[in-house]
Nucleic acid binder design. Structure first.
Lengths: 192, 192
DNA sequence: GTCTATACTGCGATAGAC
DNA sequence: GTCTATCGCAGTATAGAC
């Protein structure tokens, strides 16, 4: 195997493993497969992570954190509900196009296969934040809905399904080209 | 193991295996586990299905067919776009409550892990049918959208996300109790 | 710290009794 | 047709050289 900067090796393992996990599923990815994909040896991998499960958990935290940070960056400065929800949609669409492996992980990875007691991904910080935005929007009349949770489902459902179909190559058009129309439909489902 | 009607054994294997597959993932379910869950021996299982993969494929066809038939039954007699799309939503909600294991399979199973060249589930007959309904609805002015595919995404996204969250026990309310509100949001996203 | 070689476990699938 | 016992293989993780 060619010489690799040692500082990069851990990252190479994380990157390769994430792509394999999301493509083949946790239990269908062997350590030898990660060795082949990353160019890092078994011994080195086990020097970074005690078990395959711990490696998967690390990947999970990293992926969740990255999406959350991107969302917070986009959210800054948005004043009304429509704009804040648009920030969520833009984060999803932008991530889908610029780092499809990350978005694929977030949407399709079955993390229950290696973490038993984890809350569903929709309890994570970004989704709780979206629920709050919808709640506030209903309170000040920007959004028309009897139940903020149900309204949140309608909006996020329309946005996330677009990302899913794009990642499965069913949607041929890049999401940024049709973002306006997708967001318009999602917003129409709950606007006042 | 207790005496079981031989005619039922095949069905017991199919049922137990489907639940295990959807809960743990194909590669994390061993034949011994299916033996334990179904009460049918290894030898009998291999007399019904040549391999574990063939068993999984059979389960897949059966699940897809069942949902499709239920959808077609509900669709009969509906005249306009709104009612036809409502039939789709009702089929999803009803299946989620009455046979959650089936709906969980349809929404979350990664069938690519045991079938390589299969089209995504959204190319399946029910989803093609929904796209046609939306297309016709746009043509006769019942639906306002520039693109039938994008509009279909908005509607089905809102509906399917509700089913997902219900199956993950995030939504505590049975879907039939909030079906009207969910359908109203989905329809609002595309109505003329 | 990092490598290769290997120990041990549990899998899918089969064989042979009934 | 159905059962139990077992084969061969691939997996995770480790050990010991460098």
């Amino acid at each position: 195997m060619r010489k690799i900067n040692p500082a990069d090796k851990r990252q190479r393992v994380l990157r390769s493993a994430r792509n394999l996990f999301v493509k083949n599923g946790f239990h269908n990815v062997s350590i030898p497969a990660i060795v082949r994909a990353s160019g890092v040896s078994t011994g080195a991998i086990y020097s970074y992570f005690p078990t395959k499960e711990a490696l998967a958990r690390h990947i999970h935290e990293q992926a969740m954190g990255e999406f959350h940070r991107n969302f917070m960056l986009r959210l800054a400065g948005r004043t009304n509900s429509e704009e804040k929800l648009r920030a969520f949609a833009e984060t999803v669409f932008e991530t889908t196009e610029s780092d499809p492996d990350l978005m694929e992980y977030l949407l399709f990875m079955r993390h229950g296969e290696f973490m038993q007691d984890t809350a569903p991904i929709c309890f994570s910080e970004p989704f709780r934040r979206v629920q709050e935005i919808v709640k506030d929007g209903i309170a000040n009349g920007e959004i028309a809905a009897a139940d903020f949770f149900i309204a949140g489902i309608a909006y996020t459902g329309a946005i996330l399904r677009a990302a899913e179909l794009r990642l499965q190559c069913v949607l041929k058009t890049p999401l940024n080209e049709i973002a306006d129309r997708l967001i318009a439909h999602a917003w129409a489902s709950i606007r006042g």
